[in-house]
Amino acid sequence: MNVIEIKNLHKTYNTSQVAVKAVNGIDLSISKGEFTAVVGPSGSGKTTFLNMVGGLDRPTSGEVFVDGVNIWELSSRKLIDFRLRNIGFVFQSYNLIPVFTAKENVEFIMQMQGWDAKKRFERTKKLMDEVGLGDRLSSRPGKLSGGQQQRVAVARALASKPKFILADEPTANLDSHSTENLLDIMERLNMEEEITFIFSTHDPRVMKKARRIVTIEDGKILSDERKEAEVAH
């Protein structure tokens, strides 16, 4: 079953002198539980592509269906709500709220969804335990290492039980130990809870873990490889 269905997606940026085609006709389907890496050189259109899939950047043309809903046909207000309830985001520079504790950073998404305090706390505790930070609930981001902050960001992305998680270069600012650790956590969550992950990356360690690698160059899909054999072990 496809969680995401992308049809003939285009994005053109009109600068004063020239029209730049950042994404130039992408068709892609992503099934539930996939662990997909979108790779390509800098400027290939990875981030723009992910932003359009995540409902952040309006495509010039084309369609993005999430669970059958064409997200770019939604009103601006409904699209924000759709992102809140269906998509988890992990950013390259973590983007945690510095004045919130780790617990509050994870909780506030659930609060915006209207969860009651008890359920919020239980889920936060569970997610923080899963990312190995159950003892750092009261720590503010400034007191956490980069790897720990990114694990909190993963817990935040998972908090609302999204249909899929978009991670834009999640390991770009991490050392190798933190990267391995984070990838292990995401892989485990993917396997155990069947959460769909889509990464943009050019980190070989992420590519190694990914079970599907979509290579983009000049805004087009160059290749789409599945590593089914490795999943089996």
Partner: peptide, 14 residues
């Protein structure tokens, strides 16, 4: 700016 952008991205409405 970036933090507010993040909040809007993850679903904080206007």
């Amino acid at each position: 700016t970036k933090e507010i952008g993040m909040l809007m991205a993850v679903g904080m409405n206007k």
